[in-house]
């Protein structure tokens, strides 16, 4: 790990001490949770180039399985683990038939998946509590340690995110990361090196789903309340926007995108519906003028300054 990264993580660990109010820390915690889901999306969309609008659906599966498990008396970590397994299974079920499809067909299939998950959460009332959701979910904890404050949650979530970043970096620097990018850049050439590109895409989607479920499960334990609307298509689009804003295919970009688009709506709350108009216009502007996101733009700026 490079020294400036270490400094970054250390600074991040001090954040709750710098942020005065509990509300600000809560927003920061939500940013970490979103960052987890976006990091996952980066595997399948950023690296492997497969459109995935099902990320919120996977997060929903993760949140509800964790919540139900914990409410049924399982230790939190075990419920979370179960959630990851279920989400991984769901990703295989979705990906095996659909990852052969080309771009916008896949987009529709994943949107359809997200809608189905949302409808099931909404209408399977005996299990999911319907539109009123599940309340009084046991908090994040392991053994005798239980997360009690927003600041404690920050440290736990930050540690999880650090681990998630580490894993993402290892995948990126391994044959798998290379294979994902190769599949996105030139699939036929990739398969003619002997690479099973369908399998590579499946692994990418599975990693995406597991990250999303981790995000959802921790959300359930942090907020201690889940409802279907938190995992609808709007959330899927938001996660996608975070990825594009930060810089598709960049781990740092995922973190930046998640931070910006989590904090911004809170900071601009006074705009009401105008915020959503601004958000839509902002996404269009990013796509048109900064298609490789904040990280790509910064890199280009740096190169220009370096040369000129």
């Amino acid at each position: 790990m490079r020294p400036w990264m270490l400094i970054g993580w250390a600074l991040a660990a001090c954040l709750p001490l710098l942020l005065g109010s509990g509300y600000a820390v809560q927003v920061a915690d939500l940013a970490l949770l979103n960052a987890l889901a976006v990091l996952g999306l980066n595997f399948v969309t950023g690296y492997a180039g497969q459109v995935n609008f099902g990320q919120a659906g996977f997060a929903g599966i993760g949140a509800y399985v964790t919540a139900l498990g914990a409410l049924a008396g399982l230790p939190f970590w075990l419920a979370l683990l179960a959630a990851l397994v279920v989400a991984a299974g769901a990703s295989l079920a979705l990906g095996l038939p659909t990852l052969r499809l080309r771009s916008f067909y896949l987009a529709m299939a994943t949107i359809g998946f997200g809608e189905i998950v949302h409808l099931v959460l909404l209408h399977w009332e005996s299990v999911t509590g319907g539109s009123s959701g599940l309340r009084q979910i046991p908090p994040i904890g392991i053994g005798r340690f239980v997360v009690g404050t927003d600041a404690q949650a920050w440290w736990v979530l930050l540690a999880v995110l650090a681990l998630a970043v580490l894993v993402a970096g290892r995948v990126r620097r391994s044959w798998l990361g290379r294979a994902m990018i190769a599949t996105a850049d030139a699939e036929i050439a990739a398969s003619l090196t002997g690479l099973d590109t369908l399998r590579v895409k499946l692994v990418a989607l599975m990693l995406a789903a597991v990250y999303a479920a981790l995000s959802g499960g921790l959300y359930a334990g942090y907020v201690r309340y889940v409802s279907p609307d938190q995992f609808g298509n709007q959330q899927a689009v938001l996660l996608f926007s975070m990825l594009v804003l930060g810089g598709t295919g960049s781990i740092g970009g995922c973190l930046i995108g998640a931070a910006v688009l989590t904090v911004l709506p809170e900071a601009l709350r006074f705009l009401h519906a105008w915020y959503m108009v601004l958000y839509g216009a902002g996404v269009v502007a990013i796509v048109l003028f900064m298609p490789d996101g904040v990280v790509g733009a910064a890199r280009r700026l740096g190169r220009r300054l370096g040369v000129g």
């Binding site: 689009v237 996608f240 926007s241 594009v244 959503m276 108009v277 958000y279 839509g280 216009a281 996404v283 269009v284 796509v287 048109l288």
Partner: peptide, 9 residues
């Protein structure tokens, strides 16, 4: 994503 964003607007 662009067309979705236009829809949001």
């Amino acid at each position: 994503l662009t067309t979705i964003a236009m829809g949001i607007i």
